[in-house]
Structure formats: structure tokens, C-alpha cells
Design a protein around this nucleic acid. Structure first.
Lengths: 131, 131
DNA sequence: ACAAGTACAGACAAAAAAGTAAGGTACTTA
DNA sequence: TAAGTACCTTACTTTTTTGTCTGTACTTGT
């Protein structure tokens, strides 16, 4: 694997899975690459403007080393590189789906409290300054 | 959520999920708590001897704040605290199963290369110092 | 008296991850 | 000649995460 990273303990297979997908942007990148294959570097950058080029290339290289994405260079000018998901990457993306589902549900649940609080505040504000 | 942590970008629900389960030992802890409910602090420590007490309590508290485990204190001497999975925690554990599956498969795949190398080295060693 | 067990808390340090900023190539367009 | 595009690379800094160590309050066993 590409970099020395925090070693995840393992007893049930989650260790290696999280080692592969645990980076800050990796899940997102895999998802986007899997959606819009093949994807170019600049395309990914545009889709995710907040990621720095360094992190982008670093994550892409690690994911390539982990065998979940494929990198293909076209010797052209200007240079052109395409990224796509390997079969393993595609499988991983599918395995991630239930987790994403849970995440969405949990997000809604935990936001209800917030929304409630916001509504209460807004109501009070509107009562104080109506119209 | 319990602590300020690196903010995960989100577009598909994976952000919040990984924020909840992303710690080094969290998935493992959830899995063990879900297996052997209810679990005491010392029990978890014994099950996972490599985790420090600080990380154990820290992760437990964060998971409690995220609503995936429940903490119950019995006012006894010596103190007694029991941890169990909430319904949401149980759901999360289930959602994690496909990922664990993938991890196991991927681990086997990537270890084939290593096993080959190890066998070669061992054979050489045994040839040098047999018996 | 002293060690051992329970479930933590807090200060501090080390390690890992992520970010910033600058540069580099090889070619095109103005 | 300068600026622009695409795809990186490197050095350096900051932030986040994890680990180590010490200490608490109380009881039981020797």
C-alpha cells in the first residue's frame, strides 16, 4: 500500500476496508469516478473544488496502489490522464452503499434537533419583529 | 457530535457515516459491543488489549454522543458501567457488514502476493539452516 | 499497611493526515 | 516573450489523531 498510514486493528475485515477508503476524500472520489467513468484529473478537480491538487493526486495514487482505480495515461499534448474504477473498486463502491444510506438517515435524525431549535429561534425572532 | 474532528466532505451520506465510525477503533468497538451486549469497560479493554484506556473512553464517549451506543451507570462500589448498542448503532453495524465482506476479500487478494514472497524467503532460510 | 481492581480524567508528546505555496514540463496561443 | 493549460512534484507548516503516563476515589484481599 502506498503510504505508511495509521494501522487499523482488524478482526472482521473492516480494518483493511477502512485503510483503503479512510482518507478524507477517497470515498467521494471513488464515488465520482464510478459515476462518471472515465474521469480526468481536471474534471475531478472541478467536481470537488475544495480539494487541493496535492491531496487529489495523493489520494488517486494511493487508490491506484490499492487496486481500486485504474490510471491510464495518453501521451498527448496537453497531457491527458483518465481514471476509472477497477472491478474491485466498483465492488467497494457497492459495499459502501448501505453505509451511505445509514449516513443519510442518521444525518436527518440528528438534524431534526437542530431544525427544531432553529425554528424555535426563528419563531421567537419573528414574534419580536414581524412582517 | 462529540469532538471537533476533520470535516468530511459529503455528497452521498458517506461523510456523516465515516465521521461517526471513522476513528481507529470505533468500528471494532461497535462490533464487539453489538456482539456481547451489554459490555463493561474492563471487558472491552480485555477484548482489545492494544487500545489505551484513554482512547477507549474517548471513543466510547464520542459514540455515545453520536447516538450509536448507550451508556448505563450503576452506582455501586466498585463502579460498574455497561455499554450497549442503540437501535441506530445496530443498524450501523449491519450497514458495515458488506464493507467488512469486501475487506476480507480484498485482504486475501492483496495477501496472495505477500504469501508468495514470504514462502520464497522461508524456503531460502530453511535451506540455509534446516531442521 | 499495601497491592490490586474499577472506571475514568488530564497533561503532554508523538505520529499521521491534510493544507499551502511554489515550482516544473511540454506544448499552444496571443 | 509572456501567459495559459494539464498534470503533477516537492518542501514546509498546521491541524487532527493517537499514545504515554500519572492521578483519583473507593473497596476488597493479604
Amino acid at each position: 500500500m502506498a503510504k505508511k498510514q495509521r494501522e487499523l486493528p482488524d478482526s472482521c475485515g473492516l480494518g483493511p476496508a477502512l485503510a483503503v477508503i479512510g482518507g478524507k476524500w477517497k470515498a467521494l472520489l471513488l464515488w465520482q469516478i464510478h459515476q462518471a467513468q472515465p474521469c480526468r484529473f481536471g474534471e475531478l478537480k472541478r467536481l470537488q473544488p475544495d480539494i487541493s491538487e496535492k491531496m487529489l493526486i495523493q489520494h488517486l495514487r494511493e487508490m491506484e496502489a490499492d487496486g481500486i482505480i485504474h490510471r491510464e495515461v495518453f501521451h498527448q499534448v496537453p497531457p491527458r490522464v483518465e481514471y476509472s474504477a477497477t472491478p474491485e473498486g466498483a465492488e467497494l463502491d457497492l459495499a459502501l452503499a448501505p453505509l451511505a444510506e445509514w449516513g443519510k438517515k442518521h444525518q436527518e435524525r440528528t438534524e431534526k434537533a437542530k431544525v427544531g431549535a432553529v425554528r424555535a429561534v426563528r419563531t421567537a425572532t419573528e414574534a419580536a419583529a414581524p412582517g
